[in-house]
């Protein structure tokens, strides 16, 4: 039953692709998370820790099982198409994070407007100046519309910055 529990997706890695074994990776992740969670608490015995401790032990156990399965199988599943894709993903995530971090500084409206315009331009590639103008207008209207909707109708006041 143990090794029959998993199925390997067909695509095994070749060439420049970044590929690794899913079972081994997730097994290791579970072992690390589980043992971290267990050592965080005061150990076995306290009532409020019974449940988290149970869960972390199960995680470690399952992690070991998965790691063994992964080592036995040695299949490799694709993680990224290429290093380039991995870098792209990091850039995109960083830009979203930057957007969130900017909000308390410059306020929801400006940050969102800026973010929408930049993302739409970068993701969409180069294009006609008129199109960029359209993006700026539409993004502004969307950001403002959401601000008004949440503030006016639902009493949720999105963060304001120094100016707006």
């Amino acid at each position: 039953m143990n090794d029959a529990g998993t199925t390997a997706p067909a695509g095994t890695g070749t060439g420049r692709r970044i590929a690794f074994n899913h079972d081994l990776l997730s097994g290791l992740a579970l072992i690390i998370l589980g043992s971290f969670a267990y050592t965080w608490g005061p150990g076995w015995g306290e009532r409020t820790w019974v449940f988290p401790n149970m869960v972390s032990w199960l995680m470690v156990g399952l992690g070991i099982l998965l790691a063994v399965i992964g080592l036995a199988r040695r299949t490799r599943e694709k993680l990224f198409e290429s290093w380039r894709a991995a870098v792209d993903v990091s850039w995109f995530s960083a830009s979203v994070l930057a957007f969130f971090l900017l909000i308390p500084q410059i306020g929801y409206f400006v940050a969102t407007w800026l973010f929408m315009v930049v993302q739409a331009s970068v993701l969409g590639g180069r294009r006609h100046p008129a199109a960029v103008g359209l993006i700026i207008v539409v993004a502004g209207l969307l950001a403002l519309g959401m601000y008004q909707l949440f503030g006016g109708a639902f009493n949720v006041h999105l963060p304001e910055g120094r100016w707006i």
């Binding site: 529990g5 998993t6 997730s26 589980g34 449940f51 972390s56 099982l65 998965l66």
Partner: peptide
Amino acid sequence: GSSFFRGLGGGLFGLLLST
């Protein structure tokens, strides 16, 4: 999805997050 054990692992992680 593709693996029952990995699904279970995800579920356990969710349980841990809930605590």
